[in-house]
Design a binder for these strands. Structure first.
Lengths: 340, 340
DNA sequence: TATATTTACTTAATCGTTTACGTAAATACC
DNA sequence: GGTATTTACGTAAACGATTAAGTAAATATA
């Protein structure tokens, strides 16, 4: 079946394509009667405008890119939902790109977006990103960019984050309140601002409570679940093993639990645990895990809204440029012994 | 910064845009020397071809759509990774659309894809989809479509599924082997082929073991986690409550566990549980849950490969049109009492 | 040497939509 | 009744890349 375009509509109605176009866009200089005729036939023939032709002409694609490390994490899965909700409502299409935590991939993906494919970019940078030249290239090309969760500060049109410092502080304070004396911090990447914030919140809470931050309690994990389990287990077999652990990212929870099992430490009696996580099933783990939950869906929605605002050329007030959404501490058995 | 196109390259090199285009595409009728000059300048000026212009002209967009119910589920999250991997390798872009389990949305999304925006569509249909006219419209427009996981049979260019019947049979047989006498089946949608297959596998196993399938053991769940917990809990308070439960989809696990807790039934002593799930943390639930795990990543990869093959016009052999990937039964404590 | 072929380009049309500009007819205005 | 304005449409150029067809010069062939 040949797809029908404006030319076909024009022919059938004895009009020019210009008139068709204007009628469809409800231009004031087309008579009401003609508009109706066009609309009717368009509907009857199931006319769908060619997206590429429109985009080419208008230099607008009604499409935005979402560039994220991966979708394995509950956080990103949920944030896609938020982005999609806002985008769909505003008539935008969403291209999803995964960087797999590789800076080079992030760079090449953004490069491909330079020439009109998208009207704007939402990004959560990889754990290896340091250089920002690829971001600046986008800006120079006039493509708005909004960061969410993992951000570079002050170079995008907007940033949507959670209060990571406070969250980590709270979590650490909570463990201290539960009588932990030596709290380990499992991190995933040091270059990531988000990780630094969480780490600093942790350090700050220790300090405020008169504890020394011990280097041996900082454990840098890798991308492989199996390796991490071994790594953590080793840590648990040290003679001055920690009595509290904070997992700064969700993906470390499973290896952490498995390591505790392997080391025959019971949670929370022998060791207390808490994590940053958006797991839907945090409450049914053995034991239920205390978490900081990020408003992933909301963050996706907010970031997309900001981006679309920027795309439309609306001014973004200073207080809107950086939006901090509150995360939530959910205390469960893994850290408190309470039977939630 | 004005984006540079072929016109700019042409001007700087005193050539026509035709020559530029051919040089970049390595046409045989451009001299080697000119090609080098063009390539060099293109690199220097950071030339990126305009995607819409190319797509319009070539009637190819190098883009595919992935239409799925939602990303909340681990299954879809993982399958996106698979799709993205194959697409990226083949130079394709991926548009993600969520239907939120609404048939009308699925319909309107597909309609928008009719006119060239994408070269092909990957879809996992909503639980409410019955009518296939929107699928046929795509086919009529010459856009290949590949189903994965939740399929309509024999109308797409390909289908990628798991052996749902067998998996459910296996799972049911396993519970029977563990001495369950009354096994409930929690389902999510009846119209979905995937659900029918799982249900039939369950029924078949019951039959083969001389059990009667009891209607009261079929529990149709809804989209709300809270409601489902209540629904299941009621079921557990019946006097002839089941002593085994199969959750046919992952999202029912949390409400199911919570319902068991609320009903003060301990797993697996009082009741045995198993589920279809791709949860990364199945092993650390309280207790670890026996699962059928689908090869989500592989399914995404396979479906994308099939689709790209169809897009390229390569023939898809009959034995390739329907691909069944094996899922995996992982027995854990929730159903066996063994301490995995 | 005259003709045929090859080489290396250019010209111009095309993809489908949009829009600045032009225009003929209808209507309004003085 | 003659000019000005409005109405309702058409013409044609543009968006940027691609390609069929054309062409001039260089080279090969007889």
């Amino acid at each position: 079946m040949a797809t029908i375009g404006m030319k076909e509509l024009a022919k059938q109605l004895n009009l020019s394509t210009a008139t068709i176009s204007k009628a469809l866009r409800d231009s004031y200089d087309i008579s009401e009667e003609t508009k109706q005729r066009v609309l009717k036939l368009a509907k009857k023939l199931n006319y769908i405008p060619n997206a590429h032709a429109s985009s080419l002409r208008a230099k607008k694609s009604k499409t935005l890119a979402m560039v994220i490390p991966e979708v394995a994490d509950s956080y990103f899965a949920q944030s896609i939902n938020g982005v999609e909700a806002v985008a769909q409502a505003a008539g935008f299409h969403v291209l999803v790109y995964l960087t797999h935590e590789q800076y080079e991939k992030e760079k090449s993906i953004l490069k491909e977006l330079l020439n009109g494919r998208v009207d704007g970019v939402l990004i959560s940078v990889t754990s290896q990103s340091k250089d920002v030249s690829h971001i600046n290239e986008l800006k120079d090309a006039g493509i708005p960019i909004v960061f969410f969760d993992r951000v570079f500060e002050n170079i995008g049109n907007g940033e949507v984050i959670t209060d990571d410092f406070n969250a980590a502080y709270l979590l650490t304070q909570h463990l201290i309140n539960q009588h932990c004396k030596s709290i380990a911090f499992l991190s995933f990447s040091n270059s990531l601002s988000i990780n630094m914030l969480r780490l600093n919140g942790y350090k700050s809470a220790l300090q405020d409570n008169g504890f020394n931050m011990e280097k041996k309690n900082l454990l840098a994990c890798l991308n492989q679940e199996d390796e991490n389990k071994v790594l953590i287990e080793k840590h648990l077999h040290r003679k001055n093993r920690p009595d509290g652990i904070i997992a700064s990212v969700e993906k470390l929870i499973t290896p952490l639990y498995l390591a505790c099992q392997a080391a025959k430490l019971s949670i929370p009696e022998d060791i207390k645990i808490a994590a940053f996580s958006n797991l839907a099933n945090a409450a049914i783990l053995a034991p239920p895990i205390t978490t900081i939950t990020q408003p992933a869906f909301e963050m996706g929605k907010t970031a997309a809204s900001l981006l679309i605002k920027a795309i439309k050329g609306q001014t973004i007030d200073a207080d809107e440029q950086k939006i901090v959404l509150p995360s939530k501490l959910e205390i469960r058995k893994s850290s408190s012994g309470a039977s939630f």
